[in-house]
Simulated scan of single mutants.
Amino acid sequence: MKMTIVTDVHGNVLGAVQGHSLSESKDGVEATVSFAAGHSTHLVEVDDDLATVDDIDEFQQRLRGHLQQHQQQQQP
């Protein structure tokens, strides 16, 4: 599953949005998600079952794990 993980200037995970698009149009209404300056978005592939995780600590831990893997893959 695709997720966009959001981090602050210190690399702390702030949250995630399902998918890689931060805007959507439906029935003439358009919505866009934006973040304050200094925040970063990371387009990451995560486990499909992450959408069903109810425990916030587990969710954050798994997000951090996926983000670390993603960042390691991006290094030359």
Rank of each mutant, 00 (worst) to 15 (best):
Q68V: 07
F59V: 03
A31R: 14
H39W: 10
P76C: 05
V17N: 00
D48A: 14
S40Y: 10
T7C: 06
D8N: 15
E45G: 04
K2T: 11
V53Q: 04
D54R: 14
A51K: 15
V6S: 00
Q73R: 15
V44W: 01
G38P: 07
G15F: 08
H20K: 06
Q69W: 04
S21T: 09
L50M: 13
A36Q: 12
N12P: 04
H10N: 11
E24L: 13
D27C: 07
D55N: 14
V13N: 03
A31D: 05
V33D: 04
E24W: 11
Q73A: 15
D48K: 14
D49H: 09
A36M: 08
S21H: 08
V9W: 06
M1A: 11
E45N: 09
F59M: 11
D8P: 01
R64F: 04
T4I: 07
F35N: 02
V53R: 00
A37H: 11
L63V: 01
E30D: 07
N12V: 07
Q68T: 10
Q18R: 13
H66A: 06
H70Y: 12
D55L: 03
M3A: 11
K26G: 05
A37E: 15
E45Y: 04
G11S: 09
Q74L: 15
V33N: 03
P76G: 13
D8E: 06
S34F: 13
G19C: 02
G15E: 06
D8V: 04
T32E: 15
T52P: 00
Q69E: 13
G65Y: 10
D27V: 07
Q74K: 15
D47Q: 05
D27N: 15
P76M: 05
V29E: 13
L14Q: 04
E58G: 01
P76V: 09
D55V: 02
L14A: 02
H66D: 06
